[in-house]
Design a protein around this nucleic acid. Structure first.
Lengths: 178, 178
DNA sequence: ACCTGAACACCGTTCAAGT
DNA sequence: ACCTGAACACCGTTCAAGT
């Protein structure tokens, strides 16, 4: 009955595992992502998964990368900069437990650290594009960096959506000329 | 040989456990803080610790509270506001893995959430005192909140000390009149 | 009231043995 | 090349049994 030897090639199998891992990650977070649960969902032995992902961190990072990429795809079209930044913060706020887990694993796993940096640099570069016309060139990098740091702080604190939005509006009103 | 029945009273025993837990937390972080390791260090059975701390979260929060309190005690006397804020950020940066763990546990443990809030409110209130003479009263709360959010963001990002200081200086130069 | 030692149900990871 | 099933060394937590 195991239809998994040469009949399914490696990349398809990896895709299948990643889809299940992504689902588990969304539903139960990092702690809920276990090789045991995943294996039984995929009708595999626990050890078999190590053939595809040599480490829990490898599996986690690969699945998390997909979740983040999806969350940050199609930002609101032609909205003002405040609304666009608020949108990004709220998208990340939904994934906050995932961000926290990624940050935690980044201390032990080079892959996790790389993904964390990549997400933050993506945010920075989008911000610079968004603010380029609106801010003098000399301040652009500092302001973009500051907003990313601030956004990261908003996510790390136990605030609700309204508080996040209010504090973000205050910062933007201070840093970005109207 | 067990000199622990009525000979040592409860509070002293708790103090002894907390000291060991604090040491373990500083050396090995949240993951390294295990009832097993702690018990063998204290020459106790694993189960005995549950008599004093019903849950790992209870033990962790109690030990972490001491670590944070110590780290934030005696701030630099009569320094400028930039140096004092930088000092606090660096003190917390040293404990960043602990902050991350606390934030993670705050989702599952009310005690962890309470400690996290308490630390942040302590920072906020110190900041307000520090900036009170320097900022118009109407902006004081917003600026203090913003700086705390920013500081939290600095800690959540993989930056070195120089980068943290530079970004903090930029923010303060924007928010606090010289 | 406090402690022991065993048990339970999990982990991530490894590995000999199979196909 | 892929998979199984058992093993290893851990977890946090519970609990009957002792003092």
């Amino acid at each position: 009955m195991p239809r998994n030897r040469q009949e399914i090639d490696r990349e398809d199998k990896i895709e299948e595992i990643l889809q299940a891992a992504e689902r588990t990650l969304r539903r139960a977070g990092y702690d809920g992502l276990s090789f045991g649960a995943l294996a039984s969902e995929l009708h595999l032995a626990r050890g078999a998964l190590y053939w595809y992902f040599p480490t829990k961190d490898d599996l986690f990072v690969a699945a998390a990368a997909r979740v983040f990429a999806e969350a940050l795809s199609d930002p609101p079209h032609r909205a003002g900069h405040v609304r666009r930044i608020t949108w990004a913060v709220e998208q990340l706020a939904i994934l906050e437990p995932l961000s926290a887990a990624l940050h935690d694993r980044a201390r032990h796993s080079a892959g996790a650290a790389a993904l964390e940096r990549a997400i933050q640099e993506e945010m920075c570069s989008r911000l610079r594009d968004l603010l380029r016309g609106r801010i003098e060139a000399a301040r652009l990098n500092d302001v973009a960096d500051a907003i990313v740091v601030f956004a990261q702080g908003l996510l790390a604190m136990p605030l609700d959506q309204a508080e996040r939005a209010a504090r973000l509006r205050f910062l933007l009103s201070e840093l970005v000329p109207t």
